[in-house]
Design a protein around this nucleic acid. Structure first.
Lengths: 333, 333
DNA sequence: ATGAAAGCGCTAACAT
DNA sequence: ATGTTAGCGCTTTCAT
């Protein structure tokens, strides 16, 4: 089996020069129709496939943006990615997708690979990078962080909802239903989890309620374990730090033989589609929209690298479903 | 802002030739320690980042495999991907990940892009490509299809479970519990869905039961709608074509006020982790293992392109959980 | 409308 | 141990 045909092979077969073949394949109007046809036919017959590496090298651009996803197993990130890809494609960029599986060192390696591939920009759909690493990357290439605010770093934009506010909304919602013993299952020790926790605490204080926080994580098992602890503490309502963990909490409630919402109410956070089927209330963010905004910010910054660092906030709201209801024994209207 | 430093800049700063700098950065032992240090220091000071496009071009290889995922929203595929990436990394390949969002034409475009980027192999974690397209791709580059069998196409390997057999196991399981009115909610009109349906029909026949099939799809909404129809037909047990649809079916059961498994039993297919939390019985496939096998097959074929087309089958088994139990009114042991 | 020539950033013989 | 040289496949002036 012979090696792949190159542009030269196409040109030769069509009886023209490399340069003309290149022009023709790019659809240039200054190629005579007869040559154009000959070139296209030759390319087709040879099964010619342009070599992007060669083209990128000489063009000095790749028309590609790199996307890092924290965790492919969380459907939330897939929903954000939809928005990124849709908009990137519209703007003429293809995307290179990597994941670090929530491990900082793998993340670093993967993103470094993206940079070596000369992506023109970076979208980080959550990450665990150190500030130093993040700033280093942002210095090299336009970067936007999705899911939290990163103000003031040159070359870096961000999009997110207001997690503190969202958590307060969750508390408001449960308090309005008459719940007092609202326990928060945290998402562990990371930036977003801390903000959601802070919002929870503010919300409880605003309602004159005693906050009660138990450790969890952004995974099903974290939600499961946290929920058990919360139940032992006498919770009538659970506010779980994210939707995945809320699914774990649901399992804990089931295993304890508790009904939702009659015995215990449950609220998650993120707004992933799956929770609709499970009829679980959640603090929803416009996920695909966040992705679109991220891609817009990025392509704008690529076009205008000096632009000052911007942050875009998206709206967050409670989507009330069957899992949240009045506390047991409360008067029904 | 100046342009990115090149190897030439590094060499100049270290006072050596490009070639030596190249050797040093590749960790060659034939570089004097003193020059090595100077070169590494220069690279570091300049923030040098090797240009993969240039390197791939001259090396005539990219050490990259392309991975196509049918649908990022189905966690099943993410679990397969884990296995692919783990093994690919071990074997010295990085991965380029794309998705066509289950749209054949987007798929074609994305995979074409992969080929233009000169990936050395292709893993298709499910796809909707025509046979012609698939064979065209496989002719150009070693390819392995995950989730179904594609025998006899040169250059093409495959890994899957036995979907017919798996579906029979599901029927066996439900029949053993005493169910007779076992209704199958299909996964639509595609290869896998057809095999699972065929297995269901064989299983029902083997137990002397009347098969009853309703249309669905591989999505939550398909499962929801299909389940409603099935319930109208008097189902006491639902065998749903995949796990995502089974979650939809769960919602239908809840909306109808039916208890699981007391009123209706439910079995899904795929073995995604989430179903453990939901306590739903499923026909499980070893997903990460499938990914590992795929990566192994691919790297083997890259090393040995002439090897004949092979198919690897993985074990499929029923993971019984709370959603499947004796039919209503049946004697309890 | 077409071709010749230069060169993108890098690697790999081949010299020395 | 180090440098010189020749490309990899392509795009893009610049001539003609």
């Amino acid at each position: 089996m012979s090696r792949r045909p190159t542009l030269y092979d196409v040109a030769e077969r069509a009886g023209v020069s490399k340069s003309l073949a290149s022009l023709a394949l790019q659809g240039s109007p200054k190629v005579a129709p007869s040559s154009r046809d000959a070139i296209l036919a030759a390319a087709d017959e040879l099964g010619y496939r342009p070599n992007r590496t060669a083209s990128s090298l000489v063009r000095q651009r790749t028309s590609t943006i790199g996307v890092h996803i924290l965790d492919l197993h969380n459907p939330v990130f897939a929903e954000i990615l939809d928005g990124v890809q849709e908009r990137a494609r519209q703007r003429g960029y293809s995307t290179l997708l990597v994941t670090g599986n929530a491990d900082p060192s793998t993340e670093r390696t993967e993103i470094t690979g993206l940079l070596e591939s000369r992506v023109e920009g970076l979208v980080l759909i959550a990450h665990r990078l150190s500030d130093a690493d993040l700033e280093e990357f942002a210095r090299e290439v336009p970067t936007v962080v999705v899911t939290w605010r990163t103000d003031g770093v040159p070359g870096l934009d961000s999009v997110s909802g207001d997690d503190e506010h969202g958590a307060r909304l969750a508390v408001d919602h449960l308090a309005a239903l008459g719940h007092e013993r609202i326990v928060h299952v945290t998402g562990g020790d990371n930036r977003i989890a801390r903000e959601r926790r802070a919002g929870y605490e503010q919300g409880m204080a605003a309602h004159g309620l005693e906050p009660y926080v138990v450790d969890g994580s952004f995974t099903e098992s974290g939600g499961y374990a946290g929920a058990l602890t919360a139940l032992d503490a006498g919770a009538t309502a659970l506010f779980v730090a994210n939707d995945l963990a809320a699914i774990g909490a649901l399992a804990a409630l089931r295993d304890r033989g508790l009904r939702v919402p009659e015995d215990v109410a449950l609220v998650g956070y993120d707004g992933m589609r799956l929770l609709e089927s499970l009829d679980v209330t959640t603090v929803a963010q416009p996920l695909a929209e966040m992705g679109r905004v991220a891609a817009d910010l990025l392509t704008d910054r690529i076009a205008q690298p000096g632009r000052e660092s911007t942050y875009r906030r998206v709206e967050t709201r409670v989507v009330a479903r069957g899992s949240s209801g009045p506390r047991r024994g409360a008067a029904r209207r």
